[in-house]
Each structure stands twice: as structure tokens, then as C-alpha cells.
């Protein structure tokens, strides 16, 4: 596990990068833009085939952050990269459902499932 910034830690597994949020309160007003910038940096530095956000530690997901995740997924898709979320708390899953994004994002119950599905030998149809 590598500390990428004060917001996130990352783990590289083959051509997949998993991002962990270091603080549950990171997703708060003043830090939205910084978080989005760090996620862009992860993609630029590691150029992963697949990016997985492990949201286990996230207890709050305002629409501004949701917007950044939508933008990130669209951008990665245009680059032929894959993007997924895993380990969602029920309240975060509820927000995605309300926003109609629970089926638009690729979501896995846990990191192991995500890595298995997104490995290079897995199918290419995942978003």
C-alpha cells in the first residue's frame, strides 16, 4: 500500500490500481476539487488498465464528488480503461441508487471480486 496523498492510498496489482480513501470525512466541501485532482494524477502516473475505488471508508458522498466520479469514469472509458467501485456502505449505495447510477457504475461487493473481474484475463465488456 502506498500513500499517494493525504486523501488517498493506492495499491497496484498487475495492471489494476486500487484506491483507498484515508479518511471517512475526506469527502467534504473544501476537499472535492483536491480529491478529483489526485484521482486524475493516479491515472496519469500509473496509467492503469483498470481503476478500482474501494469506498469502504467513505461515509459521505455529496453530489459534487459524485460528479467527479462520473467525469472520471467517462474519461477512462474514452481511454479504453476500466473503472469500478467496491465495498460500498449502504448509505453510499443508496445515494447511487437515488441518482440512477447504481447500474451505470460497475460496482462489486468487495475488492476481491473487483480484481477478479477486472484482471486482464477477464471479459472486456465491463465499464
Amino acid at each position: 500500500m502506498e500513500t499517494f496523498s493525504r486523501h488517498i492510498e493506492i495499491r497496484q496489482i498487475g495492471d489494476c490500481v486500487v484506491v483507498y480513501f484515508t479518511r471517512s470525512r475526506i469527502l467534504h466541501t473544501t476537499e472535492h476539487e483536491q480529491l478529483a485532482e489526485k484521482l486524475r494524477e493516479v491515472v496519469e502516473v500509473y496509467r492503469p488498465r483498470s481503476l478500482v475505488l474501494n469506498l469502504h471508508n467513505v461515509v459521505f458522498l455529496p453530489s459534487a464528488v459524485l460528479s467527479h466520479l462520473v467525469t472520471l469514469k467517462v474519461r477512462l472509458g474514452k481511454q479504453g480503461r476500466r473503472f469500478a467501485l467496491c465495498n460500498l456502505r449502504p448509505e453510499i449505495a443508496e445515494i447511487l441508487r437515488i441518482a440512477g447510477l447504481d447500474r451505470w457504475f460497475t460496482i462489486f461487493a468487495d475488492e476481491q471480486d473487483a480484481l477478479a473481474a477486472l484482471s486482464t484475463t477477464a471479459g472486456e465488456s465491463l465499464g
Binding site: P62, V74, I95, A99, L101
Partner: peptide, 16 residues
């Protein structure tokens, strides 16, 4: 939440 707007980055705040 309409299919044609799902990829739009904004517009979810009021709904939430």
C-alpha cells in the same frame, strides 16, 4: 436520472 443525462456531471444536488 434520465438515461440521456446520466453521464452529465451536474444536476443531482436538488434531487438529493
Amino acid at each position: 436520472t434520465s438515461p440521456e443525462r446520466l453521464e452529465e456531471p451536474s444536476g443531482r444536488g436538488i434531487m438529493l
